[in-house]
């Protein structure tokens, strides 16, 4: 390997990204070449200057802003994918060229009926107002309806479209699809209806960000959570025990500790203490036991047993220490 080529490899040598063979060759060359050793030192100095500059860090705030803006852009993008485009796309895949025209005409007719329905006739989903808050209630969920009965309303997206029948002579088609209607609910976090929606989101949303925000919003309510809908408590317990995201579990624990410490909550906390793989969660569970009333802890054999088990067998030092501290407090 010649001198010039070694010089070209030096920056990459410094980054530690050469192959073992190349690295050995560069090292060998450096032993005998004063010029290249000087070049290497100079490169080190240059890297040190660049590394000494203040680092640019992307803050959580900036990331959140970017995500919100992306979400809005995605919403706009989704609206663009109209029913017509989707149906036309499916038609292109399903029908032979000679049927496409007939299908397009029929689909356009159906879309027209749907749009007319959306404008003039709304049933199936009802929007009502109670205490100034729009509530959404589903009144029918027919999976199969005739064209004359109407099946769409404004903003409805379709998915999972399946063709059942096609009559090329009459141009009549029959198909099923899922109608997904975007809804917007705004209301106080302590409202029973809002809490039901939040409880549903905690258990069913695939998005950990949505689950985290929902649980955090509830945790922020403090003692007002005492009167929360039972569905909320149940959802929080489910999240605490099963959510894959430790942030969600942690916030669920914080929210539950605002509620009266009953048997269900105690069992959920002990479940975390005994089974959660995240040591931070186990410590949080111990700390939350500290917050419960002294008398309850004193008389509760389950809690004492769980704490003793942790003192003896938890694989994390800090968890054992915390459990011991709480046990000592109890026995005083």
């Amino acid at each position: 390997m010649n001198h010039k080529h070694i010089k070209e490899l030096l920056p990459i040598f410094l980054y530690g990204d050469l192959s073992p063979d190349e690295t050995a060759e560069v090292r060998q060359h450096l032993e005998t070449c004063t010029e290249c050793r000087g070049e290497l030192e100079s490169l080190k100095a240059f890297n040190a200057v660049l590394s000494g500059l203040p680092a640019v860090e992307v803050t959580g705030e900036l990331l959140n802003e970017a995500r919100q803006e992306l979400r809005a852009a995605l919403r706009r993008e989704t609206v663009k994918q109209s029913l017509w485009e989707r149906v036309a796309e499916r038609a292109g895949k399903i029908f032979a060229p000679r049927y496409r025209f007939a299908f397009s005409a029929a689909a356009m007719l159906l879309a027209g009926v749907g749009i007319g329905y959306a404008i003039f006739y709304r049933t199936g989903f009802e929007q009502t107002k109670q205490n100034g808050m729009p509530l959404v209630s589903e009144t029918s969920q027919n999976s199969r309806q005739s064209v004359n009965g109407g099946f769409l309303r404004g903003g409805t997206r379709t998915d999972n479209l399946h063709f059942l029948n096609l009559d090329p002579q009459s141009g009549e088609v029959e198909f099923t699809f899922d109608a997904v209607t975007p809804m917007r609910v705004k209301g106080n976090v302590n409202d029973e209806q809002v809490q039901k929606v939040m409880a549903h989101a905690i258990v069913n949303s695939d998005n950990p960000g949505v689950r985290l925000k929902t649980v955090s919003a509830l945790a922020e309510q403090g003692e007002q959570l005492r009167d929360a809908d039972p569905a909320v408590k149940s959802a929080l317990i489910t999240a605490l025990k099963t959510d894959g995201n430790p942030g969600v579990r942690s916030e669920a624990l914080r929210a539950l500790m605002q509620m009266p410490f009953d048997k269900e909550i105690k069992e959920a906390v002990l479940f975390v203490l005994l089974h959660d793989k995240n040591s931070g969660m186990r410590v949080a569970a111990i700390n939350s036991l500290e917050l419960t009333s002294h008398e309850k802890r004193m008389s509760d054999a389950d809690i004492l047993r769980a704490l003793k088990k942790k003192v003896q067998s938890d694989d994390t030092n800090y968890v054992r220490l915390q459990a011991r501290t709480v046990l000592q407090e109890v026995s005083q």
Binding site: L63, A66, R67, L74, D159, V180, D206, N207
Partner: peptide
């Protein structure tokens, strides 16, 4: 299939 929640969960790993 149009699940924006899944899309977010997917890209939030790298965003």
């Amino acid at each position: 299939s149009g699940d924006t929640g899944a899309f977010e969960a997917l890209v939030y790993q790298y965003d």
